[in-house]
């Protein structure tokens, strides 16, 4: 063992400096100058390194083109078709193309204007964070707090944005939270990333039904219609309803549509229409969700003005058409 007064002095000074840095950054709310420097300096380097470490090189060039378009989806689609013809050779390329097409499909349906990007780095400081660097930045029109999607649904949101790269917080991150809404019943709440634990949904209405298999979409924000989350982006499916007796909310485990461990091609939503048709972006359900009956929980207001038109005449007789009920032996 060897120790010296000098070493301890140096350590003390370093710790003091570190605490100063922490305090400064904490006060600035994470948008300090060092973060900007880091993004500007290391973003391009990460892009370069990933371009080498990722086996497919040629696809990258094509996608770099795509990035610069940041125009409407028709252009992207045309580019896709061209790429599809060019790159029929490799399975990996085809997989990438497929995910790009699915992203394009989702964005096209919602009329989102997206900037397509690829993940160049994953962040996971000491196993506590779920973030990623993507190869699109402020030069491409990306801003802070924008929704990031892929063909399956919600990926996350943008944090610090550099000139050519941005950091995104993934939905699996424990600090991730987004307003969410149950498809069908329109009950609202929010989803939280869980880190190594699963994502959860917290529903604010304790009386509304919450069932396994229900699907969640982003709720969007009424004030800023496209920040941080645009509405109607598919999030996931309820897999387990957790018991919350006596609480003012209900909680459920969510299986996200997006596989956060294999994200590659993503799209940053840079502009969204004011309204997106309800539940229009959800994938086709394997088991059709039962439409809520007219005599459900919707009648508390009594006005009937805002309730969706469920055409009660067609659904009311659903029992009578079924064959004879089961008989007791």
């Amino acid at each position: 063992m060897r120790d010296s007064r000098r070493a301890r002095l140096v350590l003390a000074l370093l710790l003091l400096t570190a605490f100063t840095l922490i305090t400064l950054d904490f006060r600035s709310g994470g948008g300090g100058p060092f973060r900007t420097v880091g993004n500007t300096v290391f973003g391009p380097i990460e892009r370069a390194v990933t371009a080498v470490t990722r086996p497919i090189g040629s696809f990258f060039a094509s996608l770099g083109h795509l990035n610069s378009y940041k125009s409407d989806n028709a252009k992207l689609r045309a580019q896709n078709r061209k790429l599809l013809e060019e790159l029929r050779t490799s399975d990996a390329n085809r997989a990438h193309l497929l995910s790009l097409e699915r992203l394009d499909h989702l964005a096209g349906q919602a009329q989102f204007r997206i900037v397509a990007a690829r993940v160049v780095a994953i962040g996971n400081a000491l196993d506590f964070e779920w973030t990623a660097t993507i190869d699109a930045g402020s030069n491409d029109g990306v801003r802070r707090n924008q929704t990031v999607i892929n063909g399956d649904g919600l990926v996350g949101k943008t944090l610090a944005v550099g000139p050519t790269t941005s950091t995104i917080r993934l939905g699996a991150d424990p600090e991730f939270t987004a307003g969410a809404r149950l498809a069908g019943t329109q009950e609202s709440g929010f989803v939280d990333g869980g880190g190594h634990n699963p994502m959860t949904f917290t529903m604010l209405n304790t009386r509304a039904p919450l069932n396994v298999g229900d699907r969640l979409v982003t709720a969007g924000d009424t004030d800023n219609h496209d920040r941080p989350f645009v509405p109607e982006v598919p999030i996931g499916r309820i897999t387990r309803v957790l018991p919350t007796p006596g609480q003012l909310y209900r909680k459920a485990v969510v299986a996200p549509f997006v596989d956060f461990t294999s994200i590659d091609i993503v799209g940053v939503v840079v502009a969204a229409p004011r309204t997106v048709p309800r539940d229009s972006l959800l994938p086709p359900s394997p088991s059709p969700t039962p439409t809520p009956g007219p005599g459900g929980t919707g009648g508390t207001g009594g006005t009937g003005q805002q309730s969706p038109p469920p055409s009660p005449g067609t659904t009311s007789g659903r029992r009578s058409t079924s064959p004879s009920p089961s008989r007791t032996p």
């Binding site: 070493a7 922490i22 973003g43 780095a121 962040g123 973030t131």
Partner: peptide, 27 residues
């Protein structure tokens, strides 16, 4: 490591942790 892009924690946390680790390992 604190300022390299995908990082999102408060800057200085890893600097602090690694400084302590470096000192201890150096002993």
């Amino acid at each position: 490591a604190d300022i390299m892009p995908p990082a999102d924690h408060t800057i200085g946390l890893l600097a602090l942790a690694y400084a302590v680790v470096g000192y201890l390992a150096g002993l």
